[in-house]
Simulated scan of single mutants.
Amino acid sequence: MTTTPSTRTPWIVGVSGASGTPYAAATIRALLEAGEAVDLVVSRAARLTVLDETGISFRDAHWRGDLAAWLGWAGEDPRLDAVRYWPAGDFAAGPSSGSYRAKGMVVVPASTAAVAGIALGLSKDLLQRAADVNLKERRPVVVCVRETPLNRGTLRHLVELDEAGAVVLPAAPGFYAGLKDVQQLVDFVAGKILDVLGVPHTLFERWRGELGSTR
């Protein structure tokens, strides 16, 4: 899908420092494959996690090539034209304002620090600020928390996010669809995120109400 600056309305994807960056990659990949535009914010802590989990050094100056490697695409893949990258420290970025056009936001994976920062309105970086903006503008916000077990403070913060209108979506893959490998489990969670956003996908087979119906 080709968009002009005046009509482009992206989904904002914020990647925090929690383990589980494959969930972020699967979500970004699926949104782009569905023809959606994406605004990407990668926190400073997330860069360390991406490096640890994938071996990819995600850098502001080389984000396009680094993102392509992360998604498993060629650097010149035209689908990357639908991505706009914003440094996490850029508080003058578009997503920091409620007047910036956006469909909503996904925080995936969401660390407990990010959960707390969003719930308390700390806006300590662009990821937290953008989430706060989308909540106040009553846009869809999905928080894909990836931590276990959860302490009382985090549980309270998650309840506060739910009360503020966010959807709390734990990174908890289902096994009923005959999933057999790690990527299928990752795609299941990404598919659940896209379901909440109302974006069509084929990331997993759906339950049809009878045993063996998904296999």
Rank of each mutant, 00 (worst) to 15 (best):
A26V: 01
A18Y: 03
I193C: 05
L197K: 03
S213H: 12
M105D: 02
G75I: 12
P78V: 12
A177T: 03
L51G: 10
I193Y: 10
H201A: 07
D39L: 05
A177S: 15
G209T: 11
E205W: 04
R29I: 04
G65F: 08
A166V: 01
S57V: 15
E160N: 12
V167G: 04
L40H: 02
L48A: 14
L31A: 00
V143R: 00
L127E: 02
R47K: 13
A92M: 13
A37I: 03
V145A: 03
V106D: 03
K180S: 14
A88M: 07
A30G: 01
Q183R: 15
A18Q: 06
E160M: 13
Y23L: 15
A69L: 11
L67T: 07
L120N: 14
E76H: 12
P173M: 05
S43D: 10
R47Q: 12
P109K: 08
V199T: 14
G104D: 08
L203A: 07
A172L: 14
R215C: 06
A92E: 12
D125R: 09
G17W: 04
P140C: 10
H201K: 12
I56L: 14
D66Q: 07
V83F: 10
K136R: 15
Y23E: 02
P87W: 07
E33N: 09
A82Y: 03
T148R: 01
G98V: 08
F91D: 12
A110T: 02
P10L: 08
G212I: 09
L194K: 01
L31N: 02
T214W: 06
G14L: 07
V168N: 08
L67N: 05
F58I: 03
K103R: 15
T54I: 09
V145P: 01
H201Y: 13
E163W: 10
A172R: 08
R59W: 05
E163N: 11
D195V: 06
K136G: 09
A102Q: 13
D181E: 14
S97V: 06
D195Y: 09
R208V: 08
S6H: 14
S43F: 06
G209E: 13
D66P: 03
Y176H: 15
I12F: 03
R84I: 09
W207Y: 15
A26K: 00
F91K: 08
R139P: 00
D162T: 15
F204T: 05
V50Q: 03
R156H: 11
A166G: 09
E53M: 10
P140D: 13
G212D: 11
T49G: 01
A92N: 11
D81I: 04
L185T: 00
W70H: 02
E163Y: 07
V13M: 07
L40R: 04
I193Q: 01
R101C: 00
G174E: 04
A131K: 04
V142N: 01
S123F: 06
A113F: 08
H62P: 02
K180E: 14
